[in-house]
Amino acid sequence: MKRLTFLFSLVLFFACNDAPAGETETDANQTLQEETAETETPTEPASAEETTPVKFNKYLGYYVGDFEAKEFDSDQNYSYINRITISIEEMMDGEISGRSIVAGNDRPFSGTFNQRESGLVEVAVKEPGDDKYDGAFSFTINPDGSLVEGIWKAYNTGLAVPERIYELDKKTFTYNASLELPEHVGWAQLYNGEHPEEYVDFAEALSEDVLAFNPSSDKLSKTDVENMYQGDLEILRNSIYARHGYSFKNRKMRYIFDSYVDWYIPVSVDVRAQLTSLEKENIELVKRYEDHAEKYYDVFGR
């Protein structure tokens, strides 16, 4: 099934690919992933509030925080921490359902819950199992619905990280074009998240340039971006997706937005339909200079 979806999206990708020639392989991959993601996005239950009894309404919503490795195979390329959103969407008659969004993967789950006399809600849910990274969550929601705490175990025990723990805070997500990157992103290192080495050789530092503009609210011109390093451009462009709650598959981006950007809440694996026309124009512009820097910055040529 997965393969079929992939093939289908491949067809989609080529059918509506109006991207200019000379695009790098990574772009193509990224677009491809986005296409794949789109076909996988489950439809949200439209009537969650109607089917969920009022007394459980306070438990519905997004719980966001670190999805931290409890056990991991250090021989494999593992991600120690990812930012996860657990979205609780429906609770009725002891049944609970929702989605988990982490590392570019949006998965539905369903299972059972049981509220103790103390008000603590105990939850055990499972993901469908047709994705490599599916598993089972068991967690508790505290009585006032502000905190989720628990463990996740992968079905596939051979994964680099078969078990993760988490403590998540309730958050509401609203798109806000004026959110700025925090200042310390300017001093961050870009790295591709390879473990066990913390920083690999080709790690590249970001600069204060990354804070100079907000591409969700400022119209960027060629002169704004032509003198910027590739790393700064990449973070600048991806900050647009981050504001829309895009969950990054790309480890390099995850590392920056997960560890440095407090306001970042991953809620979707495809935000293309939400992008404003200003953002689309800026993405197109920045991407050009990124590609140019990638191909030509350090070679014999211009």
């Binding site: 000379g22 140019h292 191909k295 030509y296 211009r302």
Partner: peptide, 25 residues
């Protein structure tokens, strides 16, 4: 030879490759 390799990027005729990617205006 290196200069020829640079020239070759523009063969066949294409207005959206290499240096021209940032000269679209």
């Amino acid at each position: 030879y290196l200069m020829w390799e640079i020239t070759r990027q523009y063969i066949p005729y294409d207005t959206d490759v290499a240096f021209l990617r940032i000269k679209q205006e």
